[in-house]
Amino acid sequence: MSELIRSMTVLQVADLQRSLDFYTGRLGFSSHGSWGDPPCFAIVQRGAVTFALDETRETGAPVPGNQYWAAYLYVTGVRDLLESFRKAGVPIERELEETPYGLLDFDIRDPDGHVIAFGEDLQPRPGVGPGLARLD
């Protein structure tokens, strides 16, 4: 039997080095390397979250936008995380708020305009993944 074990969000970026600097220097991700000559693709990871950064190949081509979130990341210690991002100069798109979907979350915006949410479950249940209690 097959099972899905992990995912990696792929974000299109205009400038690979700028994005690598942002994700590693400001958001605390580790780089797993970059590929291409010159480099045009990289993988970064923090905890169980992995992003691929894929540089636009056409000069001047716009980076695709998302309707809103490019990714939603479940976390613990959301208040501490927000404070660490503030200290690192990360642009906060939406301040911390308690949501109707049972999470305490906030949004940041990366250099390419991708909005990424970070949320902590307000009523975690043992054995149920973050945010999934409301899907029962």
Rank of each mutant, 00 (worst) to 15 (best):
R79N: 06
R18F: 02
D105S: 13
L82I: 09
P38R: 01
E98S: 15
V78Y: 03
A48I: 07
M8Q: 14
G102L: 10
F22N: 03
Q123K: 13
D105A: 11
Y72M: 07
Y23V: 09
Q123N: 14
G89Y: 02
L11C: 09
S19W: 04
T56I: 10
P38S: 07
F118S: 00
V49G: 01
G119S: 14
R26K: 15
T76F: 00
S30E: 12
R94A: 14
P91Q: 11
D15T: 04
Y101F: 15
E55Q: 15
T56H: 02
T99V: 08
A117I: 03
P64Y: 02
P38K: 01
L73E: 03
V75W: 04
P100S: 07
Y74P: 00
R79L: 02
E83M: 05
P130C: 12
D21T: 12
Y72W: 11
E98H: 13
S31H: 10
Q45S: 15
I116N: 06
N66M: 06
R46E: 00
P62R: 06
R6E: 15
W69S: 09
I92N: 09
T24V: 05
M1Y: 12
R94I: 13
S7F: 14
R125F: 10
S19M: 07
D21C: 05
L20F: 05
R79K: 10
G60S: 09
I108L: 10
V49E: 01
G28H: 07
L81T: 03
V115S: 10
S19D: 05
N66C: 14
Y23W: 09
G102P: 08
G28R: 02
D121Y: 05
T76I: 01
Q67N: 11
A48V: 13
T9K: 04
Q67I: 14
M8S: 11
D15A: 08
K87A: 15
Y68T: 06
I43G: 02
V13R: 00
D110I: 07
E120K: 01
G113M: 09
I116Y: 10
P64L: 01
L135T: 15
S84H: 07
R125K: 15
P62T: 10
P126W: 08
H114E: 05
R46A: 06
R46Y: 00
D112F: 09
F51K: 03
